[in-house]
Simulated scan of single mutants.
Amino acid sequence: MPSWEHSIEVTMQDVSYLSRPFGVTENIDETLGMQTADLFSDMLERQTDYVSPATYSPHASYIPYRRYLVDWMSDVGEQCALHTTTIHVAILFLDKIFRSRDIPRSHWQLLATACLSVAAKYEEAEEHCPPIPDLLKLTKLAAVGHTSLTFREGEVEVLRNLGWKLRAVPPLHVIGYFLAKGATFEDDRWQGKELIDKIPKYIKKYAEFFCNLTLQEYSFQQYLPTHLAAAILLASRVSLQITPRWRPELQLLTGYEEKEILPMFNHVWEYYEEQFPGHGARSISPRSVAANNTFQ
């Protein structure tokens, strides 16, 4: 059980001894005119609609082919200039549908594209949603006989299978909240030295890298998104050699003590070293993380 329930009760007087976030130039609550902690509470409540230990299905029939679907959907999403968060949500849509029923392989491409389209309509501004004719041409669905009408039927099939509940919470959404609140602090140290101005950007690049990396591997869906996001934040700090690795401010922010996220962190780190041998021992640079397309 995360310690968020206890942390949320901490008053400003109780946290007066904590360090200030480093590199946070605006108060996100004031900018948005709302209590963003309420958004995090909503994520905590809704996250199990798509990902939870209870719905983890490692033996679902599509799992051996899932990596190819993830890579393909990522490529299509990037060609459509969709936000990375939209692609992550679309893949959560697909996972939920595919683990609940057997889908004929001849139907996979249509449903995968329909998931992207539905996710875009929910996550993106209207003008950024790819038109159906463009999707049919890009994915070559038109070449196998699909029309705008049959594609819309595919979208309706997606919506029905999702129960019309489209509020999916991938770890990337949670990371966005953590970063906006501040994931590094004024008395942190980077390789034994004071932090430099670029550190928050480096943390963001690492966090997004680990979110993309763990999206590829279905075994990470045995963890709650908020739990995995906290582990990814720890992995990002470890990659940059920021000390201390974890601290009371991060426990307050995420709701997790370091011991609670260590199993997830170890899983993330082991998978990272498996995919990029030797990098974990020497830590790859933020520049190489930004350049690396983990979907390839």
Rank of each mutant, 00 (worst) to 15 (best):
S3P: 00
W4R: 14
E5H: 10
S7C: 12
E9M: 11
V10M: 12
Q13H: 08
S16D: 07
S16G: 01
Y17P: 00
G23S: 03
G23I: 07
E26Q: 12
N27P: 01
T31G: 00
L32I: 04
T36C: 08
D38I: 15
S41H: 14
S52P: 04
S52T: 12
T55A: 06
P58Q: 15
P58V: 15
H59C: 08
I63T: 08
P64G: 07
R67F: 06
Y68M: 08
D71P: 00
D71F: 02
D71W: 05
W72P: 00
D75K: 14
G77C: 03
C80A: 13
H83L: 10
I87L: 00
A90F: 03
I91H: 05
K96L: 07
P104L: 08
R105M: 09
H107W: 02
W108M: 08
Q109Y: 08
A114S: 15
A114G: 08
L116I: 11
L116H: 09
S117C: 14
V118R: 14
A119T: 15
K121Q: 10
Y122S: 07
E123W: 10
H128D: 09
P133W: 15
D134S: 10
L135C: 03
L136V: 06
V144Q: 10
G145P: 02
H146P: 00
T147N: 02
S148K: 13
S148H: 09
F151Q: 08
E153K: 10
E155N: 03
V156M: 04
E157F: 04
N161T: 01
L162G: 01
K165D: 11
V174K: 14
L179F: 07
G182W: 09
E186P: 00
I196M: 08
I199H: 03
K201D: 11
K204L: 07
K205N: 12
F210K: 07
L213N: 02
L213G: 01
L215G: 01
L215C: 06
Q216R: 14
E217I: 01
Q222K: 10
L228Y: 09
L233P: 02
A235N: 03
R237G: 00
L240C: 01
I242H: 02
I242F: 03
T243P: 00
R245H: 10
Q251G: 06
L252K: 15
G255I: 13
K259Y: 12
I261H: 07
I261R: 08
M264H: 13
M264I: 13
F265D: 03
H267M: 07
V268N: 04
E273V: 12
E273K: 13
Q275V: 15
P277R: 15
G278R: 10
G278I: 09
S285C: 03
S288F: 11
A291R: 15
A291G: 14
N293C: 06
N293E: 05
F295K: 04
